[in-house]
Design a protein around this nucleic acid. Structure first.
Lengths: 297, 297
DNA sequence: TTATTGTCTTTTATCGTGAAAAAACAGTTT
DNA sequence: AAACTGTTTTTTCACGATAAAAGACAATAA
């Protein structure tokens, strides 16, 4: 196998959802823009849709014949990127315990275990190295630095530095900047979530990321914006392994976000600083308490 | 060709220099530690040294027979890593002009031009992407963001944030920390260079990097330490293309460093902050004035 | 018995190759 | 003629294979 066709499969699945809404599909370039793939892939999708009797396709006319059934969709797991598969697998090992700091990482073994080529694993490790959890020894193996307390402290130190600066930049943005509308929308979503926190608390992490990314973007600094990838990645997995008091934690965080948003809207730099600091402090606390004890150096 | 033996060649060249100093070489493991390579490579080196009549090798005894000549050394260019070759080639293109921001980067074309496989180029681009000069479009090509004024400003913003913090951490280090001795040594080197600046001004860049890395290390934060790689990389190439007033610039910088060092030794946070700010300001100015005009967006 | 050498095994670095996906080009339709 | 479809070319992505380099193990010498 040289390259999986997950791009096609994922786009196909998303394309199926379009069939539920319309009686005929738009032009190929339009579909390409809609699904974010090339026309080549669109044509492969259309070909299969025709084959399975979902549409009648003749040049410009693409008539929907029937609504897609559950078994028309490709299985979820076949739509993942190789790097997503590798990352998940790698993080599972990392968090499963037994992954002590200092331990060496074997490309070949990882590749065999996950069932992929070594090149993909290498490329993943290179990409992953910027998160600061692993390190390469010159023409030799990788070393696991581990998700330790030191890591969490170093991460949050930078995060706090960057976010305080971004928040200040945000508050200083002119009245007519479109970000204020974005902020209003996010505020509404927060209020809604706060009201239904009892049942929807697990939707917070996604909202959290969108909120903080909006703030960081105000810095207009690529290094600050990019650094949020590290935070997002850590929090993504952190949310998965630390379910203790998830509802309570998220409830507190939503309230802090609302206070933070109010401070931003007030444009009062003192208030912004205080609200930001308060939220970051509790975020740091949450992260620190969740570090597995076995991984202390 | 599947893998070049540059590790061997480079270690061999460094090994030759040992022959000039001693009459017999130490054990294989010891040599390995000395040259930073495995025993396998050491044995290959010894085998060649024996073959070319440099040493007599019999088990433990490795007697030096003659001093190495110039033609015993492998050519300099054969000792480079592939990634060094690719980086140099890539940067040359980037700085040669005609590399407008937004331009797309072609892996295959790069690989062909440099005469290497696509895998190596891909891995280089992934590694290089953390410098913020290029960006990947999801399952498509890379896009050049370019060495623009915006880039320089974003870079220096972070640099200043990080260095001010590191410098403060440095000054707060206890009396008995070994960094003070390192600082003393660096101070001496600065004084020496200041005295002979007329002839040795081009040695400043290397000293500059060592000095700033020492400071950054005091932060004890991997993200801060790692970020210096971005700065070092930019300054490395910056020094190559901007030779205007090099002597004057370096003379000023050496003086600023000495003031900075004095401030650190005084442990007076106010003085440290002032000296650091002053130096960073002139460093930023130097960098900004050197940005090629043609690359403004 | 401990470090060192000789030998064998494993892992990393790099390439060429082939399928998936993108992009370019050419011919059609409205 | 502008946008679309059909066709061809190019590029990206991922693999297996292979030489370089590292590492492990057994045999040996101090």
């Amino acid at each position: 196998m040289s390259k999986s066709n997950n791009v096609y499969k994922d786009a196909y699945n998303r394309g199926l959802r379009l069939l539920e809404e319309t009686k005929s599909l738009p032009s190929e370039p339009e579909l390409g823009a809609l699904l974010g793939v090339s026309r080549t892939t669109i044509r492969t999708i259309l070909a299969r849709m025709e084959e399975t009797g979902l549409i009648a396709w003749n040049k410009r006319s693409k008539t929907v014949l029937r609504v897609p059934r559950q078994d028309d969709f490709f299985p979820e797991e076949e739509t993942d990127t190789l790097s997503q598969i590798i990352e998940r697998s790698f993080m599972r090992r990392l968090l499963a315990g037994g992954a002590e700091p200092g331990m060496q990482i074997n490309e070949l073994e990882l590749a065999r275990e996950i069932g992929v080529g070594t090149t993909s694993v290498r490329e993943f490790l290179i990409r992953f190295s910027r998160f600061g959890l692993i390190e390469k020894r010159r023409n030799s193996h990788w070393v696991l630095k581990g998700f330790t307390r030191a890591f969490a402290l170093e991460l949050t130190e930078i995060r706090e530095m960057f976010e305080l600066r971004s928040a200040a930049a945000f508050a200083a943005l002119p009245e007519d900047s479109p970000v204020w509308a974005d902020l209003d929308l996010l505020e509404d979503e927060h209020r809604l979530l706060a009201r239904e926190i009892a049942t929807r608390f697990n939707e917070f992490s996604e909202l959290d990321e969108r909120f903080h990314r909006l703030i960081h973007r105000a810095s207009h600094n690529r290094f600050i914006v990019d650094f949020y990838d590290v935070i997002a990645m850590i929090f993504h997995y952190h949310y998965q392994w630390n379910k203790a008091q998830e509802r309570e934690r998220n409830e507190v965080a939503v309230a802090e976000h609302l206070a933070y948003i109010a401070a931003l809207k007030s444009r009062d730099l003192g208030k912004v600083d205080a609200a930001c600091r308060k939220h970051l402090k509790s975020a740091r606390h949450t992260l620190l308490t969740s570090i597995p004890e076995g991984q202390q150096p």
